[in-house]
Design a protein around this nucleic acid. Structure first.
Lengths: 107, 107
DNA sequence: ACTTACGGTAAGCCAAGGCTTACGATTCGA
DNA sequence: TCGAATCGTAAGCCTTGGCTTACCGTAAGT
């Protein structure tokens, strides 16, 4: 059995919030402790903690406790899950598109 | 100038709602009028109309008025936009991952 | 040991948005 | 031309969820 990738809908709902997207953007530079992340954002630290919970549940982030701090980093699993979902959407959209083109060409 | 693809955040926020995802799923089979879409869902037709508005604004759907009915179909633009966003996320996540691996290997 | 820093959790407030009903506009069928 | 069907929009209700303050546990430094 594959290592159980998180459902795409959790990933989408996690990325739907602007603050969470900002956190993701911040993590693109590399692992950061909660306080540092919150320092660069216009919301409180507890808010960031709550968002990080959602992000980790969605498989978009990982934690690595390092003594006193907890370092969060981007996790590939969530992104991959969403990407697979979009791939099928993409295929179907293209197929429907080609279908419509074929149908309109017939007239 | 490229044909102006919609911002990825609109696409994500559009796909964040379960009902809208259900509509997208319904449209994967091909173009459908509003009434038919609403018929397969547990919400009213006006609700579907409102959702379709969001989906078209996000570049995920297109309309083709056909006499009395309005046929909605999936549009590739929105999906592509979100896919590009995920590609950069993916790359950065992998890079950070490799970086962390390299760092931990050093110990 | 005691103090300080870091961060997760709870309770509560409040705005955002999804749903419904009601209405109006447009188009097809008879 | 008249009634019926399709669909978009407006107004209003109510749930969802994001934010803050307050509190607690844990680890580090002195």
């Amino acid at each position: 059995m594959p290592p159980e990738t998180p459902p795409a809908r959790h990933v989408i709902e996690a990325l739907a919030d602007p603050t969470r997207r900002a956190i993701v953007e911040a993590l693109r530079a590399g692992p950061k402790p909660v306080g540092v992340i919150a320092g660069g954002l216009p919301v409180s630290r507890p808010a960031v903690s709550q968002h990080l919970r959602v992000l980790t549940d969605a498989g978009l982030a990982r934690v690595t406790p390092k003594g006193n701090r907890r370092y969060y980093e981007l996790a590939p699993e969530g992104v991959e899950s969403l990407r697979r979902y979009l791939d099928t959407l993409w295929d179907d959209a293209l197929a429907a598109f080609a279908d419509a083109a074929r149908k309109s060409a017939r007239e």
